[in-house]
Amino acid sequence: MIRPDWHIVEQWITPRSRVLDLGCGDGSLMAHLIDRRQVSAVGLELDDDQVAACIEAGLNVIQEDLDSGISDWFAPMSFDFVIVSQTIQAMRHPERLLADMLSIAREGIVTFPNMGYWRNRVQLGLLGHMPFNRALPNPWYNTPNIHLCTLTDFEALCDELGLEILDRAVVDSARRESALLRTFPNWFGEHAIYRIKRRV
């Protein structure tokens, strides 16, 4: 199954580039990009089952906890793109990862569930409970998603870290793009996808 943000990520990736996928899961995004963009890809993943799945799929994967740092593993600028897909919200120090990843790659692609999505706002603001839905499918007490943010929050952090936003896209889970989404992305974007680099 193709996740909603993949077709946009794919469009931003240059053919035959070097790609690092942080929190690569079972490697299906890497496989997708190898297939569509002929990239050379390596992933980082902590979970045993996911690492084994990557290796079984013939993909390159390094078993590592993203929170223990990535700049140890890779030389500066050793990748064209580093992707963090649906992962930063589960990290202890997303701000460190964002800074580190742009020291090892020219561009970063970050995707995350948008806490500002209208359904989340309604659930918290009107119904008075933590968001619990398609994009955030875990109850508050047992969720990997410990650092949720909105588009506004993310853009403020990028600014603080000296990162330039090259592209932004938002989608809903059905991959629809509409005038409404484009006009009010922080209200109607269920997932956010950013292309960023270091400000020079």
Binding site: S40, V42, A52, N60, V61, I62, Q63, S78
Partner: peptide, 11 residues
């Protein structure tokens, strides 16, 4: 990795 090899690592 620094030598540009394709490598997988499992702990």
């Amino acid at each position: 990795l620094a030598a540009g090899r394709r490598v997988s690592y499992a702990e």
